[in-house]
């Protein structure tokens, strides 16, 4: 189950998207997310959907791989849909016991579902096509103006890179500790909320200890390899814009224009 989370995993392929500068991908993802909230009609979402399909095709990441990441948010998705479906006032379409479904409710629920799905697909596409190192490099570069305000941009991005690297390791570890405690008769499923919370102690204590141990080891390994913060550091893969990046920015902004037009202004 835990392995299904694709968010934060890198899928290696040689594609136009993979080759783009991470800053372009970050900005485009941001624009895409904003666009999802600008759009308020179905035609707009079709434009967004087509754009997404175009990007997925270009990225050479198998669709199955992207969809697998969705499993993790099914619960959230259902919750959002149900809330919107039943709790939106408006013109009644269907009524059952104390529950009423309204026309507005259906519309809102559908929008919410589409937004969430697109949002997850869009952001997983970014993480799948960008190595976390590139991602954090991109973020570091984009946020570098904040350095002037004494924000430790390099340190923050290094922390993020490390967190991303250790997510799969810690997930695997969680799985292992869970199994080991189940083998000792632990029960993580039954009981009320308090009992359930208590049953997590045998899982969480070892997990935290392991995370601390790893952090300690890693800090030592980094120091041993002359790590001393961002000062005087060179880059193996420095970020430089190329022609394709300019084109990509162009396409991204064109998409925004389309979205605003079809999603807001255009009416049938």
């Amino acid at each position: 189950m835990l392995r299904d989370i694709t968010l934060g995993q890198y899928y290696h392929a040689d594609s136009a998207i993979h080759r783009l500068d991470p800053r372009v991908k970050l900005v485009t993802t941001l624009l895409f997310i904003v666009s999802l909230f600008i759009i308020n009609n179905f035609i707009g979402y079709i434009v967004a959907g087509l754009f997404l399909i175009f990007l997925i095709k270009l990225s050479k990441v198998p669709f199955r791989f992207i969809v697998r990441g969705m499993k993790a948010i099914v619960f959230l998705l259902v919750l959002a849909v149900v809330f919107n479906l039943f709790l939106t006032p408006g013109e009644t379409v269907f009524s059952f016991w104390k529950l009423t479904i309204t026309k507005e409710g259906i519309r809102l629920a559908a929008f919410m579902a589409i937004r969430l799905i697109f949002l997850i697909i869009g952001s997983s596409l970014m993480t799948l096509t960008t190595t976390p190192n590139q991602l954090t490099d991109g973020m570091e570069k984009l946020l570098s103006p904040l350095n002037k305000l004494h924000v430790p941009v390099h340190e923050i991005s290094m922390m993020m890179a490390i967190a991303l690297r250790f997510i799969p390791i810690l997930l695997e570890e969680t799985d292992k500790i869970m199994k080991a405690q189940i083998a000792r008769g632990a029960d993580f499923e039954s009981g009320n909320l308090i009992k359930k919370a208590k049953s997590l102690v045998p899982l969480l204590v070892p997990l935290f200890l392991s995370a601390f141990r790893r952090a300690n080891d890693l800090a030592m390994a980094m120091e041993a390899r002359c790590y001393r913060g961002g000062e005087n550091r060179t880059k193996m893969k420095p970020l430089l814009y190329h022609k394709q990046d300019a084109i990509a920015y162009g396409i991204a902004w064109l998409y925004v224009v389309f979205c605003v037009y079809f999603g807001r202004i255009f009416t049938l």
Partner: peptide
């Protein structure tokens, strides 16, 4: 799982109780 006991690799990484004795009690208590 009581009858077929499984000790995982690096089992010391699953210890969690305050003292040794309580940790060993975890299995039989369950």
């Amino acid at each position: 799982r009581n009858d077929v006991g499984l000790v995982f690799q690096y089992p010391e990484h699953q210890l969690f109780e305050i003292d040794v004795f309580s940790d060993v009690c975890f299995g039989p208590k369950n």
